[in-house]
Design a binder for these strands. Structure first.
Lengths: 188, 188
DNA sequence: GTCTATATGTCGATAGAC
DNA sequence: GTCTATCGACATATAGAC
């Protein structure tokens, strides 16, 4: 059961992803839902409000997932596996909204833009702490932390493009192979 | 020495990257160059023409790089290293245009859109052939070829965001660490 | 080759009827 | 809660003077 407000949100997410935020008009979104553009303003304050709703929601899901992993007492290598699983799960469940993280967050306006960037920076800092703990404990090699973070996050952030073309792929198997690729590499 | 036409192109690339294609106006580009919007039309047919010029140019650079690597008689593992080096080099030399590959190619219009996608698909097919040759020769593990391709390409395609924040990083060292991360993983 | 002026269209958002 | 009608801003692109 999806309310009209939810209908508008998911149509907006799909269109922002496909055509980009700026190239998507309120008329486009309204048509996709089967109403007129003016009617959207009974549910949202405007186009920017829609983008902010979508992006803050997904940002908070990542925040929550990271908090749970950090507060666990698992060793760094297993925390890393949990992080990869978190990205895979959120991507599968919120593919359209995730896509906006990659390409449309720049269209946020202040003060939400600042809020969003702060959340993202904190997330990356937490990620780096786990990598460094893994190096200290001798689980990870001594690569530059920034480069390790970048390699993993970039792969995770593109997962949504890949997954849209391979929906049939088993989620558990995907998670397993990605984790192994990232942690152990592709060379024999 | 940069001609006026080149000035316009690089201003467009920088603005398309920063604000997105749709949100960038001809007035924005003109102002950045120090002329009026109408003057751009003496150098380019329109905004779409600018995007096509930028994207086809960078696509052809990848095509050329891949052709050189493929025609070499190096073993697959070394071809892979050359491919990573190709991405690093093109990213450092054409950061703005490379960014458009990640987020703005969707705004291309046919027939150039079809041409661009065809070039990209061919590039990915060539990449997969090298991965599969590497598996056959026993250099690479038996992961799903699609997943290996995706892991590597996604990291390469996000390099431009990372590099803009770490311009001081030594290019040779960057190449070495990225190659090692991708091929051998981060686990000890 | 750059300018001013302008044609033509679409945008986000609002007012007010029902 | 959805509609019609509309406003004002800004978009791409063109015509023609200099």
């Amino acid at each position: 059961m999806q309310s009209r407000k939810e209908e508008i949100k998911s149509a907006a997410a799909r269109l922002f992803r496909k055509k980009g935020y700026s190239a998507t008009s309120m008329r486009d979104i309204a048509t996709a839902v089967g109403i007129k553009a003016a009617s959207i303003y009974n549910h949202f304050k405007g186009k920017q409000d829609l983008l902010q709703d979508l992006l803050l929601n997904i940002a908070h899901l990542f925040e929550k997932g990271m908090a749970e992993i950090e507060s666990s007492s698992l060793p760094p290598a297993e925390k890393m596996e949990k992080l990869i699983a978190l990205h895979v799960r959120l991507t599968v469940e919120h593919a359209d909204a995730i896509a906006l993280i990659a390409g449309e967050w720049m269209h946020l306006k202040d003060p939400v833009l600042t809020e969003y960037v702060t959340i993202r920076n904190t997330y990356e800092q937490d990620f780096k702490s786990i990598i460094e703990a893994g190096k200290t404990d001798g689980y990870f090699k001594d690569h530059d932390t920034e480069i390790i973070l970048f390699s993993i996050l970039s792969t995770m952030r593109w997962l949504y493009t890949w997954y849209s073309r391979h929906k049939s792929y088993n989620q558990v198997e995907l998670e397993k192979q990605m984790t192994d690729c990232l942690l152990n590499g592709i060379k024999k």
